[in-house]
Write a protein that binds this DNA or RNA. Sequence first.
DNA 1: CTATAGGATAAGTTAAACTTATGCTTCCAG
DNA 2: CTGGAAGCATAAGTTTAACTTATCCTATAG
Lengths: 317, 317
Amino acid sequence: MLPDFNRLKVFYHIYSLNSIVAAANELHLSQPAISQQLQKLEGELKVPLFTRLHKKLVPTAAGERLFSLVEPFIEKLQDEIPYIRQPLDRPAGMLRIGAPREFGKEYLPRFCHEFRLLYPDVMFKLKFKESIPLLTMIREGILDYALVDVYFKQGELPSFSDIFSVAPLLKEEMILVCSQDYYQQNIAGDHSFKNLLSKEYITDEDDPSTLSLWFKHNFHKTAENLNIVMTLDSHEALISALKLGMGLGVATAHLVWEEIQRGEVVPITTLRTNMVNMISLVQLQDKVPTLTEKTFRDFMIARMQKTEILKRFQYTE
Amino acid sequence: MLPDFNRLKVFYHIYSLNSIVAAANELHLSQPAISQQLQKLEGELKVPLFTRLHKKLVPTAAGERLFSLVEPFIEKLQDEIPYIRQPLDRPAGMLRIGAPREFGKEYLPRFCHEFRLLYPDVMFKLKFKESIPLLTMIREGILDYALVDVYFKQGELPSFSDIFSVAPLLKEEMILVCSQDYYQQNIAGDHSFKNLLSKEYITDEDDPSTLSLWFKHNFHKTAENLNIVMTLDSHEALISALKLGMGLGVATAHLVWEEIQRGEVVPITTLRTNMVNMISLVQLQDKVPTLTEKTFRDFMIARMQKTEILKRFQYTE
DNA sequence: CTATAGGATAAGTTAAACTTATGCTTCCAG
DNA sequence: CTGGAAGCATAAGTTTAACTTATCCTATAG
């Protein structure tokens, strides 16, 4: 199913240099070798990657799509392979942390600043997203730690995939909403599973897990092949798109409370109580943490236990 | 320098299954073939990727780092290779558009909604970032179109790399700023090139091009090896981090105007007039646009010419 | 008209991927 | 305690395909 990977490397050089001869020189191979590899790759994929004009290669649409897949990978490989074997002897280097946006605005930069006062050789790369893409990025190794929202039923503790290690911290509610206009035209009081399945949806990024969870929570059924017409990496923009009447979406209740009060946005309620998420500190369980990661984790756990945040968000048990 | 790519595929399977035997089965090869390929890869990279316990492979830190590079690529390849050869006969499928955040909140979802009313088979993936990472994503094929800010000197037209095709639309100013505390401790009136070079910086994402441009604009020198201590994908969080006194950063003037008025944030001025950016619609010049892209571009150009946005932001020449 | 240059094809060579056979080591069941 | 099982490593030979050299084709420039 997947093509020969070395041919992808050859393709990358051909595309970048727009020349088989130049790619051959770059790869220290003969020109026919490159020509043959390209033809074999086109055979494997069953699609031409270049249109051959005289002394000229013009990428096809398929060639461009393949290049867009391959180039970021090869560029990153070139950047990071030389450092892959370097060890660390004190907290240093890059820490990649994810968090929900409101956390990022007020709290996370402050914690990172304090950590840097202790360990000036540590740098940070912060991502502000919803929790499901953050978990995906953790699993994919794109993030080292994340403060994420994770769904769990009221009265129970949140359960995670076995691959994560978690410490629960804060709670928030998640609801399905749409605009008043969209509601009147498409829902009109019919909150049934069957009706909802056929509507348009707007999600954060291209992972609709929050939606799936919503359906599971409310109907105990999986909602497959939902029509997701827009994906955004901004919750504010998602709420704007919802207001336009493009479809339905799951939002954090406290962020759309004012719009619901004004009647601009309508929550889709069922007999079930609302989904509740817990903001938790998450990492990969099996991953051997680096010294920097371990130190930061201990710092954050200690720091969160005695902050004004805990006092502000933590309900008495 | 780069390892054999097919060995990366072998490594991916070994890591995923945590077993050489299982990976051999998966790849329809013999177990010694896989063992030998792994050893050759470790030789190429000059670092062990697994610690061998009896009947057990435990990934090393280098193994985990390599896997984090390889897995997203392979997963995406598996997802997208089957569709790489499909043509389009009407505007359909995914359009990936980038824009500055304030554009995203008010305008871009609305335009996308209108486009979808015309072409219901089109879906959107929107990214809200600063313009330099958006250009990078265009070049990398991660975005199809972007509304980006691009720097140009006052009195001149913006100049772009030859690889982009551009239509200028709106103007905004960019300034270098820090907190009042950081200014008093580290700058203290000394706005010289030499002094600024040694300070800490905060940037949007990991591309410091905006900073480089600021130094070029103000000193006609390139600033190399700047100490970038934090990278964020949120301009609001960047401004929060600046206020904390973590360092300097380039901000959009109209977004920090209130803080400057209150004295919380201090602009670093020189004899030069401020950098000015033009928001433009950008795509790859050489890329053959799909039908969907072409239709959307024409739609946006026509739509922007007669919107209330043009009236609100466009200064009389 | 001729020389140049880049891509394609044919046929043979060479390198390395892969195989089979076997060894090593630890763990578990009897 | 012993034998069997199972996964990884090594050795040596086989097979495959990457690569080479030689050559052809074609359009363009001078």
